[in-house]
Amino acid sequence: MLFKYEEALEKLDIGYIDFMLLHHPGARDVEAYKVMEQYVANGKIKSIGFSNWADAHGVSSAQLILRWDIQNGVIVMPGSSNPEHIK
């Protein structure tokens, strides 16, 4: 992950990446996401996220995000403008 990121910066001739997604579930997801978090902390990536995970895990993206946050000690205050989603 570290090598590919530096390679991308060099090929694109830029100082940082605005938005980077972890695109698919795999065996080293947590490790890859933690590396991405380090790059955010260093200002080399501005925003990170993930896509194409809900079907692979049998849950919605919102459920996956909430679970990850709770497991990592993040205080979560979910909300919605849709009353059905709040239930």
Rank of each mutant, 00 (worst) to 15 (best):
L2T: 03
F3N: 14
Y33F: 15
I14H: 01
K11V: 12
V74S: 06
G15S: 12
I14R: 07
S61C: 06
K4S: 05
K11I: 15
H85L: 13
W68V: 02
H23R: 09
S51W: 09
H23Y: 14
F3H: 11
S47V: 01
I45F: 00
H24K: 11
I70L: 15
A41C: 00
S80W: 10
A41K: 15
A56G: 03
I86D: 09
P78I: 02
Y39T: 08
F19W: 04
S80E: 14
K11N: 10
Y39F: 15
K4V: 04
N52H: 06
A62P: 09
Q63S: 08
D69F: 09
M36P: 03
D29Q: 10
K44R: 13
N82K: 07
K34D: 11
D69T: 00
G26L: 03
K11A: 05
A8V: 14
E31R: 05
S61L: 06
K11L: 14
P83M: 10
P78F: 08
I48S: 01
G73R: 00
Q71M: 11
A54K: 07
S51G: 06
D13K: 15
L66Q: 13
R67K: 09
K11W: 08
E10L: 02
D55Y: 02
S60C: 01
L66V: 11
I86S: 10
K46L: 07
H85I: 14
G26D: 13
M36Y: 11
R28L: 07
S47M: 07
K11Y: 08
D55T: 10
K4I: 11
P25N: 04
L2P: 04
V40M: 04
L12F: 00
K34L: 15
F50P: 01
K87A: 12
M20D: 12
W68L: 02
L12H: 01
E7P: 09
Y5G: 07
A32Q: 08
Q38N: 14
S80F: 08
E10V: 01
A32H: 09
F50R: 05
L12C: 00
W68I: 03
S80G: 03
E10D: 13
L9Q: 04
G15M: 03
E31W: 03
L66D: 12
K4Q: 11
K4P: 05
N82G: 04
Y33A: 06
K87W: 04
A8H: 02
S60K: 09
L12Y: 05
V35M: 12
K44G: 01
G58Q: 05
D13S: 14
L22V: 04
L2D: 08
G79F: 12
S47P: 03
I48F: 06
L66P: 05
K34A: 10
A54Q: 11
V74A: 00
S81N: 12
V74H: 02
H23S: 07
V59E: 14
Q38D: 14
L66W: 00
E37W: 05
H24Q: 12
S80A: 15
H23K: 11
L2S: 03
A27R: 12
G58A: 09
N82P: 02
H57D: 14
M20G: 08
F3T: 13
V40A: 02
G15D: 13
E31V: 10
